[in-house]
Design a protein around this nucleic acid. Structure first.
Lengths: 207, 207
DNA sequence: TATAATCGAGAACAATCGTTCTTTATTATT
DNA sequence: AATAATAAAGAACGATTGTTCTCGATTATA
């Protein structure tokens, strides 16, 4: 461990960040930490940076680093019990972070039908589509065919590009789609979210 | 719609925030938005605050507001192109709010194996589990069997409760699991997220 | 005890910050 | 064509920023 015990400072900052979702300035950090000198606060911050609890952000500002959201693991952890609980906890934005890379280019589309069931895309799911005009063969894309959106696999043979479904059991119901003239690609399938719970219905509604 | 079209500005800021996880200063926002005057940037920021895309943070700084993480939801069945829908305001959805109802009781678990493939749960997906000690027959639950987590369907016959897989093609590989003594339920399957993009790999890497 | 390292405070600095005010272009409306 | 509203830029303000330097107090080590 470091000579300077930075963990109490880190704890206070973590609590503050959970409240305000921002790393404050040196002056406000000094107030939060009961440190009189901004220079000393500055030094503590640098220690926290060295330990990757904090890191530099553009504009000389500071943001949480990779270790900032680590949770201290208690001593009584049963074997096999949720280690996973540590990595993702209170940050509500993390799922969003995980799934969405370019927010302005990303749109959700509810799925109708079972034409892509072999890829685990079910009716009622929401597919995450990132806008793109091009794609490569084998990719799952959202295309516009006859003024309707269709989620299919982009394929190609000697006659050109076409769209394939992925439903092995009802293959005859989903023949390949060959566009009359042009194949308009709207975006690429980059992820999926599914909510199985009935809205408003709570599982443990014992109250 | 607002007189000043703030959505393009919002989009750029959202992308920036996805990268840097910080709302920059006015000066840097001006650079990002190609606005010459900091005063004009200031005004756009205030519009975004009025619409609750941004909000004030301690120290005169700015942080994302409640609507910052909303995603647009596109139409799936409706005929017509999205440009036609320009007049009607698009539906917005926050992924986290949509999926998670009780954050403190919710944990993500990565999926191993294909035993639940018939329900569209694939290896590599993240299932959303809400803690619960009880469940009803037919529900998908995360149970603890032999100190390991297992995602299965809760079933019951004359001999008592047991766990079923859902893989029609390899049924013989996943026989029903009958606990020796007690069946420990960890939580209920309430949703799923899937990221198909390879992390760090951009689809349109044409540079 | 002597000495070095660390802890903590204060002062000072240029740079940047958010904000406000004024002025000029552009657009829409009458 | 006249008028109003909006979009955009520029200048300037004091306040706050991150950083560095210096100097006493405390602690550990030799």
């Amino acid at each position: 461990m470091q000579p300077l015990d930075i963990l109490p400072y880190l704890g206070k900052l973590q609590d503050y960040y959970a409240r305000e979702r921002i790393v404050p300035s040196m002056t406000r950090l000094s107030l939060l930490w009961n440190v009189k000198a901004r220079s000393w606060t500055h030094r503590i911050v640098q220690r926290l940076k060295e330990e990757h609890f904090l890191e530099n952000a553009p504009g000389g500002r500071v943001r949480p680093g990779p270790r900032f959201f680590e949770r201290t693991v208690g001593p009584m952890v049963r074997a096999g019990l949720p280690q996973q609980a540590a990595d993702m906890q209170p940050e509500l934005l993390r799922i969003d972070d995980y799934l969405i890379e370019n927010p302005s280019q990303t749109i959700l589309f509810p799925v109708k039908g079972d034409s892509m069931i072999d890829l685990g895309i079910l009716e009622g799911d929401m597919v995450i589509i990132e806008r793109a005009n091009t794609a490569s063969v084998g990719q799952v894309i959202l295309a516009i065919v006859d003024n309707e959106f269709t989620l299919k696999v982009l394929a190609r043979d000697k006659d050109g590009y076409y769209l394939e479904a992925r439903n092995g059991r009802r293959n005859q119901d989903y023949p390949p789609i060959r566009p009359e003239q042009k194949l308009e690609i709207y975006g690429a399938y980059v992820g999926l979210i599914r909510k199985t719970r009935v809205p408003g219905h709570h599982l443990n509604a014992s109250r």
